[in-house]
């Protein structure tokens, strides 16, 4: 019990004092997972929308690929991205291994299928006649897309939450492709693993608490936006 209470106290203390190391880890986590989520949205929304609304050859194959991707173990993603970025790998010349960029790439691979899948479901549950109605009112393709996305905004926010939540709390892939280098690729999850393995439970607990608070804050913010718009 002392361990837990001590950890909590320590965590609050670290936050309160804006411990530079903790702040750098927090900032890096936000930056990497935020970028990965944004990139996945840029990729996932158009693809999910196309899969939901358009009919083209290979659509079913892509959908089953997406569904598989939604449940892909991060460790496998880490492995595959590592192989690609390895010095002697296909993209080795880019020298991205053990950089934040590599971590963003890995997290994109994890988050994109989730966002594609949820976008697909969100757009698919809209009344198909709504498209005809909007076109009938003179909507251009882009206007139609914006209207439909706006109409599906609640499930779309769920896509953002699920994507961000999935990558901020993920540890396997970022550990493998990032390497947990202090000040460079050390994020909340990898730091927690490290501190725990060193037996520094109070620090690990502090970082875990920050991670929880972070996840809670993001979800709270999105929920508030949701309720305001709804």
């Amino acid at each position: 019990m002392d361990l837990i209470l001590g950890g909590l106290g320590n965590a609050l203390n670290l936050l309160w004092q804006r411990d530079p190391e903790v702040m750098s880890i927090l900032w890096l986590s936000l930056l990497i997972s935020g970028s990965a989520t944004c990139l996945s949205l840029l990729l996932g929304i158009p693809l999910g929308t196309a899969l939901a609304l358009a009919r083209f050859p290979g659509r079913r194959a892509i959908i089953s690929l997406v569904n598989t991707g939604m449940g892909m173990p991060p460790v496998v993603v880490g492995l595959v991205v590592s192989i690609f970025l390895w010095r002697s790998g296909p993209l080795g010349a880019l020298r991205l291994m053990y950089t934040p960029t590599a971590m963003v790439v890995a997290q994109c691979v994890i988050a994109s299928p989730i966002i594609v899948g949820i976008t697909m479901a969100a757009m698919g549950q809209l009344d198909p006649k709504l498209r005809l109605q909007m076109l009938g009112l003179g909507a251009s393709r882009w206007q139609l897309l914006l209207v439909l996305l706006r109409e599906a905004r609640l499930p779309m926010l769920a896509a953002v939450m699920a994507g961000f939540g999935g990558v901020i709390s993920e540890v396997g892939a970022v550990m493998m492709v990032g390497g947990n280098i202090p000040g460079d690729t050390r994020v909340l999850t990898t730091a927690i693993v490290l501190e725990t393995s060193k037996g520094n439970f109070d620090t690990a607990l502090a970082l875990g608490l920050i991670l929880l608070l972070l996840a809670y804050a993001v979800n709270l913010a999105l929920t508030l936006v949701q309720q305001r718009r709804a």
């Binding site: 709504l130 009938g136 003179g138 109409e151």
Partner: peptide, 18 residues
């Protein structure tokens, strides 16, 4: 698109946006 903007359509369901 230009031609479509000369007309308007109403369906069986009101199909109003939220």
């Amino acid at each position: 698109l230009h031609q479509r903007r000369r007309l308007a359509i109403v369906f069986q369901e009101a199909l109003l946006l939220d």
